[in-house]
């Protein structure tokens, strides 16, 4: 089906270009005849007409080709699910639990202690009990430490503003070591989650995401500025573990979604949808950053109307003198 359709689109493209070229030849020829018989036609008009006929056929075909890939799915009634599900979102129920929380291996504690003393203790204190500059980390659990360190937010660049995501300073093992050391100081807090993304339900995830997350991170997950220098970061490029950690621990201004709010299965669903949002099914051409009508308006006005005004300037007359 797909192959035949593509061939059809390609054939129509070729046909349209040929037809457009032929049409423009006719028009140019017509322009010449008019030119000769009436002796007064501005030839550029006829040419503008011909060029526009050619342009519209070429450009229209390009547009057809662009959407052609997106709609090659069989015509289906949307009431019936006769379409095969895409591979990336197959619902395969597995016996694995949706999320497993693991404590980092205790063998890493000595390494973690060294790293913590070197990099963190200036503010958080040697025993992670906090100081006037930084909060107490005891009892927060490994997930919190892993999120802040592994997303590059810690060590902090500027303590006066919201922590920004930087290139991470520590490797995976070093991060786990610090987490192991801090979580060994006091009990409590979630371990590092391992999400069973394959077993999650993406549709549930969409519903939960639009209810709980979109109000700050926006419905497409690009993030946005909130009041007073606070912002909801973009969710692009964030891994499954970090998403689950952020939901379970509530870093910064983000609310914490504990067990009473969202079950493990629901957290896994949201993780699956956020991962999907990073590379969504995205037909229709250039996506303009998924910011919404702001960029669309600029393209519509500057490229759409602006381009047409340039064409008008070309076709139309200028002030005579």
């Amino acid at each position: 089906m797909g192959g035949a359709l593509r061939l059809f689109v390609l054939a129509s493209l070729v046909l349209k270009v040929v037809a457009g070229f032929y049409w423009s030849c006719v028009v140019v020829r017509f322009g010449r005849v008019m030119n000769a018989s009436l002796g007064g036609l501005r030839f550029s008009r006829a040419k503008a007409f011909g060029v526009s006929a050619l342009l519209s056929s070429v450009v229209g075909s390009a547009g057809m080709l662009a959407f052609g890939g997106g709609t090659s799915a069989a015509q289906s009634n949307y009431q019936q699910s006769s379409v095969k599900e895409p591979k990336s979102v197959t619902f395969t129920q597995q016996n694995r639990p949706p999320i497993v929380y693991r404590k980092p291996p205790s063998s890493l504690i000595p390494e973690g202690r060294t790293l913590f003393t070197e990099n963190c203790s200036t503010c958080h204190g040697v025993d992670a009990a906090g100081s006037s500059r930084a909060p107490n980390l005891q009892g927060l659990g490994a997930a919190t430490i892993d999120f802040w360190v592994y997303t590059g937010r810690m060590p902090l660049a500027d303590p006066t503003v919201q922590a920004i995501q930087k290139p991470r300073k520590f490797s995976r093992q070093q991060t786990l070591a610090i987490a192991a050391y801090v979580s060994s100081l006091a009990p409590g807090g979630p371990g590092i989650p391992s999400v069973n993304v394959a077993g999650a339900n993406i549709s549930q995830g969409e519903s939960l995401f639009s209810t709980n997350c979109a109000a700050c991170h926006t419905i497409t997950g690009v993030g946005d500025a909130l009041a007073n220098n606070v912002y909801a970061p973009s969710l692009y490029g964030v891994g499954a573990t970090q998403i689950a950690e952020a939901m379970r621990t509530g870093p910064g201004n983000m609310p914490r979604f504990g067990n009473g709010t969202l079950s493990n299965a629901q957290v896994a669903d949201v993780v699956k949808y956020v991962l999907y949002l990073q590379k969504p099914q995205d037909p229709g051409g250039l996506s303009l950053g998924h910011v919404g009508p702001v960029t669309e308006g600029f393209v519509g006005i500057l490229i759409g109307l602006g381009g047409l005004m340039l064409f008008g300037y070309w076709v139309g007359g200028r002030a005579s003198r």
Binding site: F49, V59, P293, E296, G307
Partner: peptide
């Protein structure tokens, strides 16, 4: 001729945007 040509140009630019740039 001028107006007819300009109609085709307008339709062409809109078709190009519709096919190549995502909206909503």
């Amino acid at each position: 001729l001028e107006a007819g040509g300009f109609f085709f140009i307008t339709a062409a630019v809109i078709a190009a945007l519709g096919g190549l740039v995502q909206i909503n």
